[in-house]
Structures are given as C-alpha cells and as structure tokens.
Amino acid sequence: MRRGAEISLALLGVAGVLAAAWAAPWLRFVLTIALAKGIAVLGILLLLRAGQVSFGHALYLSSGAYVVAFLAPSLPEALLLLPLAALIAGLIGLVAGLFLARYRDIFFGMLNLAISMVFYSLLEKLYELTRGTDGIRVEPPRVAGLALTLEAYVWAMLLVALVLAVGFGMLVRAYLASPMGQALAGIKTRETRLEFMGVSARRVLLAAYVLSALMGGVAGAIVGMTTRHVTPLLAYWTTSGELVFIAILGGAGGALGPFLGAVTYELVRVYAAAAFAEAWQAILGVVLLLVILFAPGGLWGMLLGLLGRRPGRAP
C-alpha cells in the first residue's frame, strides 16, 4: 500500500533535512535531536499498535544516554557506543518487559512510569556514580576511528542519526506488516483469539517491547553524544510524556509519522521558546489539542489526506 509514495516521501524528508542542515548550521543540532527522538517514538508507535501506551520510555532513552556517558571515556568510538547502548537498553527492556507484558492499558502505562521513575531516582541519588543532577559531561567520541573537528562531528552525528532513522523506519515498517506486527494489532482488538490460535499474546507484546526499548537506547545514545551532557532529566516522566506527545502529534499510522512529529515538535519548541519564552509549553499544548480534535491521524494522517485528494493520483 502506497509503498512508492512512502519511499518518495522518505527520500524527500532526507533531502529536506540535509538541505536545512546545510543552509542553517544551528539546525543541525535540532534536527539530530529530532531524528533521535523520532527513533524512540517508533517504539511508542509499536506499542500503540497493540493499544498500549508507555508513560515510561524515558527509561530507555536515558539508559542509552548513560551508557554513552559511562563508557565514552574508556571507549571513545561512536560506532561501538551505539550498538552497546542498543544492547543494554534492549536487555533492560527484556527484563522489565517480562513483567510488564502481563499488564494492559492503564496498568501497563503506569507500571512503565513507575519503573522509569525508580530509575530516575537512582540516577539522581547515586551521586558517586552518576554525579546526580549535575550530570555527566561527554567528550566527543571518535567516529569510525576519526577524531573530528567540532563542526565535522556535528555533521557526523546528524548523518548517523539520519541513517539510523531511515534504517529503523524501514525495520518498523516491515515489522508492522509481518505476522508479529499484525498479531500486535490483534492484541488491541481480540487478544483472547490469539491465545485460541496458539499464539502467546504476551510474547508478541514482549518482542515489540524489547524492540521499542532497543530503539529508545539508540535514540538516547545519539542524544547523549549530541548534547554531550547527560542528566537525570532524560529519565524524568516529562521526557516519557514528550515521546507520547510526539507519537500523537506525528500520527501512529506509519513509520514516517514519528519523524514528522519529532521535527515539528522540536521546531515549534525552538521557535516558540524564542518568541514566547514564558508560554511555549502552552503553545505546544494548543498544537496537540488541535491535532487531536481535527486530525486524529496526526500530521502523517493529514499529509496522506492532502496527497490522496490530489487529482490524478490513484486512491
């Protein structure tokens, strides 16, 4: 369905990101963060397919970032830190998921929140290890063995984020069309039928949960290496809320939605914060309200609607 159109849009998006980053240097940082958050939101989207909302995915974002913060001094190589962050976040997701996959709806959401807040407290209190709310500074690691100048490093991070965004976007797209993804959607509508077909709904949800945690870890590693300062705030519930916010803003209908949402979110935030320093959160709130009221499919749904209405295009 619309495979060609989706690929064209993705390529258009990649070109757009590169053009914007080339034209406006300050956007490189913003876009890297947006792409990273988009990757984390892909995980939220997977869980939304099962009708489940996690209010605790900041746990995985921050795990990835702290893996970078802890290991960068002894292992200063971005291309090793990224898979390590993915692996560790994935393992935390597996352990937490074994417990969480038994729960649904509000219990699932709140237990995710609870676990992430425990992690937040640990990051804050274990000062000897984490330097508490001061956070940990990250020296720019090498990228593919090269020690880069700061400007080249910023570009490299953007390109890494872009490649990973495309890769995970394609992975999630394939996953959603696969029997595992379709069974995930079955959890939302008729979980008992899955059991009566011999399929463990828990394992279906667990698999998606681990993948979502892994992507959260990758996103966190990019955020850590880009901001180069990792604080417990990344694990705070507002960060989890932000990911859910972006998921709804972007729309859960396709793998491009999270990136559309994340880029919009970061840009609105930057501009709104600059223009209305006191009211930018209110502006974001109003944007979300309008999206929920008038475009339940999110920005992605709006875009599809616009493209679909264009004459000469097959429905």
Partner: peptide, 10 residues
C-alpha cells in the same frame, strides 16, 4: 509460526 518480523503476513 508467527515469529518472522521481516517477512509480510500476506
């Protein structure tokens, strides 16, 4: 067997 994450259901 549903455990194939990359090949489509259909």
């Amino acid at each position: 067997g549903v455990w194939s994450p990359l090949r489509p259901l259909l």
